[in-house]
Design a protein around this nucleic acid. Sequence first.
DNA 1: AGCTCATTAATTGTCCGACAATACTACAAT
DNA 2: ATTGTAGTATTGTCGGACAATTAATGAGCT
Lengths: 247, 247
Amino acid sequence: MNVELEPLRIEPGYRKVAAALTERILDRSLPAGVHMPPEIELARQLGVHRSTVREALRELETNGLLERRRGSKRMVVTRPANNAVAEGVRRALSLSDVSFQHVWEAMTMIEPPLAEAAARRHEPASLTALEDAAAQFRAHNADTQVVGRSEAVREVADFFRRLGDCAANPVLILAQEPLLQLLEPSLDAMIDQVPQARARIVTAERRIVEAVRARDAASARDWMAKHIRDFKRGYELAGMSLLQPVG
Amino acid sequence: MNVELEPLRIEPGYRKVAAALTERILDRSLPAGVHMPPEIELARQLGVHRSTVREALRELETNGLLERRRGSKRMVVTRPANNAVAEGVRRALSLSDVSFQHVWEAMTMIEPPLAEAAARRHEPASLTALEDAAAQFRAHNADTQVVGRSEAVREVADFFRRLGDCAANPVLILAQEPLLQLLEPSLDAMIDQVPQARARIVTAERRIVEAVRARDAASARDWMAKHIRDFKRGYELAGMSLLQPVG
DNA sequence: AGCTCATTAATTGTCCGACAATACTACAAT
DNA sequence: ATTGTAGTATTGTCGGACAATTAATGAGCT
């Protein structure tokens, strides 16, 4: 017989510690929001040295299962939502060069049907959040008060996120997140080159909100499609190449 | 004057070390494939203790910028792939309860236009990979030879991944990944309940491949839409609720 | 009691040094 | 050419230490 035995993988201790802690967070025996036990206590319970625990903690930290509240010392258990994907996306895109063309094409595909779903399924709370997001962008980008570029693009992305919440589909929300991660740097490069950009965004968001509120799926889809087309137009008006890499 | 100075964030050393190393990997001054310098050497260069370096290395490791080749001691610089998102998705979904309905709706939105793009833009290499994926599923799921359930669903997901490669849009590939992560457990629960499921998948994949090869975008989209509808039909035939959580 | 402030305890970040286990290398022996 | 051997390099883990800083405690005051 010709048995190919595969190389058994021997994991270092810090990885096992990380796995143990991860499991206890995911199965909620360490519930979200509580303070982590002190490192030395973890070390005692698990029978390893504190350094080993610390290496494991760094793993959980970069995985987003632990976070340190501002200026606080002890770390807090947290459950990552859609932003868990964000880090991964950021890493993945640092390799492959993504152009605005790519981002735009993906948005063209995903956002209009998402707006449609949002119109059909929104609930009072999610609709309110959507309206708030639109109102905030409108207020911050009126003629009299124009907020900084980076904040503006974040608000644009937030509008899409609220729309995802209206659509009430966690899978879509996850799928949308890569686009939004990349939309921000894309818009960032363009928005100040085109004077009328902010005003057009305000209008589009208003129309979309109205359609969603009226549960008019077709109209929501169409206005969203127009909104997305405007992004491309903005690039063309700014004289920027659609193929140049974002970020 | 009313200067509100915001709380400056003092980052711990291990984080700065991680940032420094990350930068040197991303700007390719530490090119992919090379061995990392020894920890003690890094510590010397950066003027910190080895423990601090190690904590930083854990961060890079979980970020996928470093990997340890099987049973090897020194770590190797590497480039993160699309599956960087996978971990994040898995964690995010362990929290919110996702139903097949959600997965199905997202696929309905994303996959048909993706097939369309694949038909338009595939290159010889990516087309070959797509054909191979379809051929592999066909061979493994013929009447005479039926492969295990988990392998079958993985091959189904792989077909979609190859299609994503054909579409040649990294953003779409990233957006699609959450769906595929969730498609596998969804299919896993269904595929053996419906005798004709595998045969129907074989047919659908064949049609899609043919359409893509012929650069017939409309046909690719339509067959993909049919393919996706079949998944839902499979659930109904199996008498399973669309609303029950997957995984 | 409730509040402010000083004092103490607890906790993290970082360091030092050490050692066993093992992967890597060079070289000798079969 | 493979196998064995010795030596080195490197990682994984450990014990302990200490300064800086946050959290907790209690004293004093209203």
